[in-house]
């Protein structure tokens, strides 16, 4: 099913979705950065830079109460809002990140707390000519419930699954030919950093990057942990217990593998006891361990770690450096 929506239809669609969901749409924050915000029925920032906040934070927030234990030892799970989220404005990269995280948390044993928020949520892609300055964003391949494809003055719309068809039922049909053109453009689209990340991944998998490189990269780190906290596929958390007058509240809190205490044993011994080892781990996990475990790298090329890193050792920067120093022939 392919439909054609003009802007009025788009707002009508979102209005209907907002009746049943906690709809989040791209909006501008006070400093002009773009993020997903509750929709107040007003104008939406339809085109621009990808939202700064990683989309996985809606289902896996930085601090997330899990349960409360009363003084008698009775545990109660933290309540989850009745209405599920509907996230509008996700590009193919953010949808890939959500798919990656969904798979991680759904993998047995499933993470009930994540899934209680995630199940029933509606993911709405925004692709086509919807990037900064109306640049092209590739179409998505089934990672969303609905996809709106910006085509200049109107949108093509399609459902990612049967259960979402009804949202589009009463709009006129869209032009399949045009979709085919956009699909061809998507097939030819390449992320600017993809080649370097792929080459670096191969070099790492072949163990061609010496330890001295990681010492050098680690020496630039100022231990902010931003790379992990900004990354939409980082899922590590630690557990925080807080005792109040009415019981103990257990929450999970985003963790960072760049911290010494991440792997430190109670004895004080740390198998990842140097910054070089931890920096190496961060990149290896994404580019070596994740492909072995899931068949694809843990980096979806969103660039958030590069933007969050104060000293320029995010994924794009590090992989570029790996390739320039250790590849037999450098990429263009």
């Amino acid at each position: 099913m392919l439909k054609r929506l003009v802007e009025r239809d788009l707002y009508d669609l979102l209005g209907r979705i907002a009746d049943s969901y906690r709809l989040r749409v791209p909006g501008l924050l006070d400093d002009g950065t773009r993020t997903l915000l509750p929709w107040d029925g007003q104008q939406i920032s339809l085109f621009g830079e990808p939202p700064q906040r990683k989309p996985t934070a809606y289902f896996f927030p930085q601090t997330d109460p899990l349960l409360k234990i009363d003084p008698r030892g009775q545990a109660t799970s933290a309540a989850v809002a009745e209405k599920p989220f509907a996230l509008f404005g996700l590009d193919s990269i953010d949808l890939a990140a959500l798919a990656f995280t969904d798979r991680f948390f759904s993998n047995p044993p499933p993470d009930d707390h994540y899934l209680r928020r995630r199940n029933g949520a509606l993911l709405i892609g925004l692709t086509g000519y919807a990037g900064p300055s109306r640049e092209f964003l590739p179409l998505v391949k089934g990672n969303c419930d609905l996809e709106l494809i910006a085509c200049g003055e109107y949108w093509l719309a399609r459902a990612g699954c049967k259960s979402a068809d009804h949202w589009l039922a009463h709009y006129p049909h869209g032009d399949q030919e045009q979709l085919a053109v956009l699909q061809r453009e998507s097939a030819q689209w390449n992320h600017w950093a993809a080649v370097a990340v792929q080459q670096a991944m191969e070099l790492l998998q072949q163990d061609l990057v010496p330890d001295s490189f990681w010492e050098e990269i680690a020496s630039r780190c100022i231990l902010c942990s931003g790379c992990n906290l900004a990354c939409p596929t980082c899922t590590c958390f630690c557990v925080q217990d807080r005792q109040t007058a009415t019981g103990t509240v257990r929450s999970r809190v985003w963790d960072s593998c760049q911290l010494d205490a991440f792997m430190r044993e109670a004895s004080g011994h740390n198998p990842l006891g140097t910054e070089a080892l931890r920096t190496r781990r961060r990149i290896y996990h994404k580019l070596v361990a994740d492909p072995e475990r899931w068949g694809e790298p843990g980096c979806v090329l969103c660039g958030r770690c590069d933007r969050a890193c104060p000293t320029g050792i995010g994924m794009f920067a590090v992989t570029k450096e790996i390739v320039s120093r250790f590849a037999i022939s450098s990429p263009d």
Binding site: D30, D31, T33, T35, R53, Q62, T63, D64
Partner: peptide, 8 residues
């Protein structure tokens, strides 16, 4: 629930 650095 958390913080987000100001991008601009």
């Amino acid at each position: 629930t958390g913080v987000e650095p100001a991008g601009n």
